[in-house]
Nucleic acid binder design. Structure first.
Lengths: 217, 217
DNA sequence: AACATCCTGTGACATACATCACAAACTAAG
DNA sequence: CTTAGTTTGTGATGTATGTCACAGGATGTT
């Protein structure tokens, strides 16, 4: 039976080796709040009150963008254990209509860090600064990848990337989703997804079932 | 007749009011290198040797993305006086094939800061840290805007944004470009641009000439 | 002035995907 | 078991933009 702060210390060692400074680890252990989310649960939506940065401990978080007017959607990237969401800084400052949405793709645990510490630790702890900067860099690169996909690639390539991203992120070759959900993530029509998946099944790249796509090979 | 370092100090006051600390201003004045680029000149390309972060003093810089294989291109955003290019951090680490390109859209002056200072100032100077973080935030937001445009909008809206962005950035309602160059920036065919511009001319939104588009209204 | 080159305009057709319409297969609830 | 709801499959048709082909105007060069 361990105290939550001891638990957090252990987690930091396992999942956030970049956070090296003892003092920082201790502060996080005291201040950080362990939070659990169920699969499908919304973590942050349009300019929500969540003024904290999440350190992801376990599970998988889906970050997506909504079209202000037409209810369209687009998956930006997935976050896993060891990641943080640098958009959180930015998110809180965005106007409500054009927000990023963050939801748990599967059961997920995070350590929540209140924003004010995030900022003050930047100058206090070298390893925190590096962690935050690295995270920003990663996110910028993810965004560039998204832009590449939608600007330069057809649906077939995008689907391939999408399936790979999800199976890798969840560690499960079987994806439990409807075609409609996938279509929303990719911002294309459900019919286009159905037809493309059918083709992939005929080439033996996937096996299809109701609410279920299994990536083969 | 002033020394370059005095000149830089003056520039900092004018264009970078966020950089408040005296010590920081002095370091920049000593270390920073004033560099001029002509219109059209390439500032940074595929994993170039440029290991510095530019503070933009005057002019306008075009940041774009190239498709690795097919020679396609896409304008990401424009930078003006007071801006910096946060992708520079990242850029140096990217593999050559999938790089960001930075070029002067008009005669442009920058202060180049060698990367090593960029990093060490983060913990040393509060206002530098804020400046860098703000710049990252801005860039992430720009990227989100780009994603919105290409994912959710048609060419007509994109063209509108594009024309506005360029005229605002250069402060000139007349744009001196060929349709082909615009098509490259927007990653569409030249014919699509020509046809759309023709329509806009018929509604009296632009006036067209050879190598020249004037935004009316 | 003659010529070559660059830029723009425009028709014809191709392609990827959206939209509409509906049927068939599966699942859950009574 | 029946029925209603959800998910998937598929044809027909629409739309935006790409691609190809070429002509005419603008500009620069000798």
């Amino acid at each position: 039976m361990s105290l939550p702060s001891e638990k957090i210390q252990k987690i930091l060692h396992q999942n956030f080796p970049q956070i090296t400074e003892k003092g920082l680890q201790e502060e996080i252990a005291i201040i950080g709040k362990l939070m659990d989310f169920e699969a499908g649960e919304l973590i942050m939506d349009y300019g929500s009150y969540v003024r904290m940065v999440p350190l992801i401990v376990k599970g998988c978080i889906k970050v997506s963008r909504e079209d202000s007017e037409e209810g369209k959607e687009l998956l930006l990237y997935l976050l896993n254990a060891g990641d943080t969401c640098s958009m959180s800084f930015t998110c809180c400052m965005l106007d409500k209509k054009s927000a990023i949405r963050t939801e748990a793709l599967e059961a997920t645990t995070i350590i929540g860090i209140p924003l004010k510490y995030v900022d003050s630790w930047m100058t206090k702890y070298q390893s925190w600064k590096n962690f935050v900067m690295m995270s920003y860099d990663n996110r910028l690169l993810e965004m560039v990848k998204v832009i590449d996909s939608i600007a330069f690639k057809g649906l077939d390539k995008r689907m391939e990337q999408y399936l790979k991203a999800i199976t890798e992120s969840t560690g499960n070759t079987t994806i439990s989703m409807t075609h409609q959900q996938m279509a929303d993530d990719l911002n294309v029509s459900r019919e286009a997804v159905s037809r493309l998946l059918k083709k992939l099944e005929q080439i033996n790249l996937v096996r299809l079932g109701r609410n279920q796509i299994t990536l083969l090979g």
